[in-house]
Design a binder for these strands. Sequence first.
DNA 1: GTCTATAGAAAGATAGAC
DNA 2: GTCTATCTTTCTATAGAC
Lengths: 195, 195
Amino acid sequence: MARKTGSHSEITGPLVRKAAQRLFARKGFAAVTMREIAAEVGVQAGALYLYTPDKQTLLFELMRTHMQEVLAAWEREPKGEGPLKRLEAFCRFHIRFHLERPDDVFIAYMELRSLTPENFAVIEKLRHEYEDHLEAILAAGQADGIFRIPDTRLATMAIIAMLTGVNTWFREGGRLSRERVERIYWNMVRRAVGA
Amino acid sequence: MARKTGSHSEITGPLVRKAAQRLFARKGFAAVTMREIAAEVGVQAGALYLYTPDKQTLLFELMRTHMQEVLAAWEREPKGEGPLKRLEAFCRFHIRFHLERPDDVFIAYMELRSLTPENFAVIEKLRHEYEDHLEAILAAGQADGIFRIPDTRLATMAIIAMLTGVNTWFREGGRLSRERVERIYWNMVRRAVGA
DNA sequence: GTCTATAGAAAGATAGAC
DNA sequence: GTCTATCTTTCTATAGAC
């Protein structure tokens, strides 16, 4: 409870969050100490409490910001007409957005269990909201007879798991370009839903 | 360096590993204390060091055992003739085996970063070995003209991510039976590889 | 806004009694 | 083989100087 957000520096605050993000993604929330974060920023451990009430809130704010950004970015995304175009837009968007933020994604998927129950409920709701966007596309395509999907919820989870999996192996400047990866995954998804 | 494996109790040792497995899966390696593990087993913290030299080795042995069991179980699995039958066997095997060991799977996928570099190298090699079994099936099917896969390595990673994702949402006794889940996923994979 | 200093709790691991 | 007791280190978070 050292401070309220926004009442201090506009420079060090973001640096603290950036350092925490990098370290949480690399070593896991529980394995990172406040001293490590402070050292990365170049301040003393005690100074961190000017920018966050505690370690838990630091994690929670990182995850909440990430989920809100995903949702906002998908809202802004050009989606085209009809379920097929929208599904392609979703697949490409998901891969592109997630590859641009590997640390955020890692934290969002790995540190759910590090959240307090109250904070977990907030993040889980946002995540569900995002999944529902995909499920709505699949349901619309199924209703139109464009897709052949036995279970839209299961297909939603399967597709998201597949797309998010890109982050575990993709390396910028590697064998495949981001555009080529997007296209191959989109083709697999398109065939998987029977389109 | 408290002991060598097998030189003490045959009862408490497995109980320690089982308790560690449960707690590591639930809270993450770094967040679990030796005292918690001891309490779960019903012994004092110091007694754990009769069954493992340290906490890191406890994690490593859990992961190594799991990976070796996956590989051994796939060797024993009836696979049928030809790439299509083998791919179906792999998909069903992967889902079934992983759903039977949710804690092991969670640890194997989440705690790679908690391993020392030496231990990580061992586990990574075993994991790669398993992925190669799937890639070999895909490559054979591609060579036979049965599958249409632009990149077998990418398809391998995509399929494994999709199949393993079942563990994040499947609940025994839920809306869908394990057999039905296996069949739906297999159909998605079959279509995704263009068979 | 950042520092030093430290309180207070808890961690991993070990020693030695029984 | 398990206990109690403890060493040593490290942690989160706070207090108060500047």
